[in-house]
C-alpha cells in the first residue's frame, strides 16, 4: 500500500511538471498541451468509435504478432537449445540478423508485402522473435542436468525429456521473453503505423492528428493510450507468470 501511495505521488508529480511545462512560455504555444487539456480530449476520444477502432487495430495486431512470434520462436529455441549442431550452424546468421532494427526493414517489407496490416505485423514478429528465442535457448542451457537424469532413471526417453522436463522447466524464462517481446512488438507496430502510411492504428491516428489539423492534444492522447497499452501488456504478462509459473 505504501508503494502504491508512493507511485501515485510520483505520477502526480510528473503530471504537475508536465502541466507547468505545457503552460510555461519556454515552449512554443500549443506545442505541448498540458495534461488538463489532453485528458479532456482523451475522454472525448474514448467515446469516439473512430478512435476505438484505431486502438483495437493496434492491440489486435500486437496480439497476432506475439502469437506468431511465440509459434516460431519457442519451437526454434527448443531445437537450437537442445541440438548443438544446429545452433553452431545458425549462429553466424542469427548474430547478423538480430541487431538489424526492424524499422530499417520497413522499405523492404513494403516492397515485399505491400501496405496492408501484414507488413506491420511481419515487422513486429521480426522484432518480437529475438527475446523469446534467446530466452528459450538460455532456459535450456540452464536446465538442471539432475532433473534430466532423474527423468531418465525413471525411463523417460529423449522426446519425453524435451516435453515433460525441458519445456516446463523453460517456461518461466520463455514467459519473461514473451513479456519483453510484447513491449517490443508494440513499439515496432506504432512506429510502422506512423511511418509507413498505414490507414488504421494508433500510430496512424497520431500521424494524422499532427499532419492534418496539427492537434497536439490528440497526438498526446494517442501517445498516452499507447503507453497505457504497453503497461497493461507488461503487467498482465507478469501476472500470468506469477500466477502460473511461480517457482
Amino acid at each position: 500500500m505504501r508503494a502504491f501511495t508512493r507511485g501515485l505521488i510520483g505520477i502526480a508529480g510528473f503530471l504537475a511538471l508536465w502541466e507547468l511545462l505545457g503552460r510555461s512560455p519556454l515552449l512554443p504555444a500549443d506545442s505541448l498541451p498540458p495534461p488538463s487539456v489532453v485528458f479532456g480530449e482523451l475522454v472525448r476520444q474514448l467515446i469516439s468509435p473512430d478512435f476505438i477502432s484505431h486502438v483495437v487495430a493496434t492491440v489486435l495486431a500486437v496480439l497476432i504478432a506475439i502469437g506468431i512470434a511465440i509459434a516460431i520462436a519457442v519451437p526454434s529455441g527448443l531445437v537450437l537449445g537442445s541440438v548443438p549442431a544446429v545452433r553452431h550452424a545458425t549462429r553466424a546468421v542469427i548474430e547478423f540478423l538480430r541487431p538489424i532494427p526492424s524499422v530499417a526493414l520497413i522499405p523492404l517489407a513494403l516492397v515485399m508485402l505491400g501496405f496492408g496490416p501484414e507488413t506491420k505485423i511481419t515487422l513486429a514478429v521480426y522484432a518480437a522473435l529475438w527475446p523469446i528465442l534467446f530466452n528459450t535457448i538460455y532456459a535450456l542451457d540452464e536446465l538442471d542436468p539432475l532433473l534430466v537424469e532423474t527423468s531418465r532413471v525413471f525411463g523417460t526417453g529423449r522426446v519425453g525429456v524435451l516435453f515433460r522436463v525441458a519445456l516446463p522447466s523453460a517456461l518461466p524464462f520463455v514467459l519473461t521473453g514473451i513479456r519483453l517481446a510484447a513491449t517490443t512488438a508494440l513499439i515496432v507496430l506504432v512506429s510502422v503505423e506512423l511511418m509507413a502510411g498505414a490507414d488504421i492504428g494508433l500510430g496512424y491516428f497520431i500521424m494524422e492528428a499532427r499532419s492534418g489539423p496539427g492537434r497536439m492534444d490528440q497526438v498526446l492522447v494517442g501517445t498516452v493510450v499507447a503507453g497505457v497499452i504497453g503497461v497493461l501488456l507488461n503487467n498482465g504478462l507478469e501476472r500470468v507468470r506469477r500466477r502460473w509459473v511461480a517457482w
Binding site: 538442471d144 539432475l146 532433473l147 532423474t150 522436463v165 516446463p168 522447466s169 517456461l171 509459473v245 517457482w247
Partner: peptide, 8 residues
C-alpha cells in the same frame, strides 16, 4: 532433493 524434484 531440491534439484531432483520437478518444481512445476
Amino acid at each position: 532433493y531440491q534439484r531432483s524434484l520437478f518444481p512445476w
